[in-house]
Design a protein around this nucleic acid. Sequence first.
RNA 1: UAAGUAAAUUGCCUUGUCGCAGUGACACUAAAUGUCAUUGAGGAAAGUCCGAACACCAUAGUGCACCAUAGUGGUUAAUGGCCACCGGCCGUGAGGUCAGGAAAAGUGCAACAGAAAGAAUGUACAGGUUAUGCUGUAGUGAAAUCAGGUAAACUCUAUGGGGUGCAAUACCAUGUAUACCAGUGCUUAAGGGUUGCACGCCCAAUGCUGGAGGGUAGGUAGCUAAAGUGUAUUGGUAACAAUACAUUCAGAUAAAUGGCAGGGAAGUUCUGAAAUGAUUUCAGAAUGAACAGAAUUCGGCUUAUAGGUUUACUUAAAUU
RNA 2: GGCCUUAUAGUUCAAGGGAUAGAACAAAAGUUUCCUAAACUUUAGAUCCAGGUUCGAAUCCUGGUAAGGUCA
Length: 135
Amino acid sequence: MPTFVVLKQPMAYTFPKKEKLKSKKLIEQLFSEGKSVTAFPLRLVFLETALEHNVTAQTGVSVSKRLFKKAVDRNRIKRLMREAYRLNKAHYFNNITTQYAFMILYIGKEKPNFIDVDTKTKLLFDKFLNKSSKA
RNA sequence: UAAGUAAAUUGCCUUGUCGCAGUGACACUAAAUGUCAUUGAGGAAAGUCCGAACACCAUAGUGCACCAUAGUGGUUAAUGGCCACCGGCCGUGAGGUCAGGAAAAGUGCAACAGAAAGAAUGUACAGGUUAUGCUGUAGUGAAAUCAGGUAAACUCUAUGGGGUGCAAUACCAUGUAUACCAGUGCUUAAGGGUUGCACGCCCAAUGCUGGAGGGUAGGUAGCUAAAGUGUAUUGGUAACAAUACAUUCAGAUAAAUGGCAGGGAAGUUCUGAAAUGAUUUCAGAAUGAACAGAAUUCGGCUUAUAGGUUUACUUAAAUU
RNA sequence: GGCCUUAUAGUUCAAGGGAUAGAACAAAAGUUUCCUAAACUUUAGAUCCAGGUUCGAAUCCUGGUAAGGUCA
């Protein structure tokens, strides 16, 4: 369970402002030059790059207005995705030396619950590690 | 008790833990960072339909055009909102609803049907008359003889409206291109700006306009104490106003207000028991909350919304 | 966040408030052909939704829904 692990290592499970992907320029660069992996209904777009702050990655989440008309639904999905990223990133990315920009997209049409998003996020990061280690 | 009408109000509560954003204090030379404290979505935050505040457009002017509104009075910062009254229509009723000025200023429109839908007078029958004109009825149609209907047709009347919107606007940082093409021009002027047009006003030689392109797309202010909110009293039929006291209540920007694990609840369904005229009470089990997320700020309107609670009233039946 | 535009057959477009909403392409059936194409004949198919004004609304007015455009 996530809560059990959290009690042991509270420091790693945060998601402060400087770990968020905000620069418009960097986001445009990410979508034009970055690669992607998919674990439906999630897609991860990533790019190895140099960041302003001393962090392993800057990450953003996105849900299309086309797929979810209501702001409540979009906010809910983005919160779940951020939460899943926060709880899983330490386990997967502690050994990475270079800096990355990430963007996680939700491409499904159904509203998910947290367990789905959590398991899919883990699957997504597994795929990402495979792909990046090969390259 | 049943069926209904009109309002008001509420919009799940709570514990632990891990996170997010703002503000303050402390540590630190400062920044970054850390610790602690504290605050953190709605009645519609929505639609952007009205009205304002505020900012810029030179000072925002005059006329026409254009747009909006339309019984009377009141209310307000303002309104197309709201309140009261009058009138029309609907409802047994409580109530609901109405862009509710002008057709004797003018122009237009009326399919089909019908003799005829405007300067027209037909046909049949009856009445009346010497006879005709005349009067009534019939048939068509939404409307047929009356100086008719239609203004959510043009129009007229009255009233109001300068334009654009916080991606406004100001400043700082970064970065280039005073390059290229077309037009025009240093002169009474042409041209451009100012709202669609006219007048008026304003602009000018590293000029102005258009085309095609290049650069930056980071930060700060605007940004939340306000026509604020709550309670009480007074005035007013009411909308609303005045006074007193209390209170400080979100400010994000790929965009905070969340995740997980419990506990409790209104309500709903089922089972059992007791009483009863419908039904109610008690016990147990299951289930466990609609519409929806601030984006400069207010006042309204409109639309979405599971249920719960309260008040006033109407109709019908029964009882006293 | 602000400001605008549009919505009619499967698609692209018409239709001064008036009879059964029209045209082209596409679709289906048939004729022709040994078969297909072309050609010809026929058929089916629509006013985004809900109110209002009007005798009568695709058209006028109001409120929703959906799809698009634009800004420093």
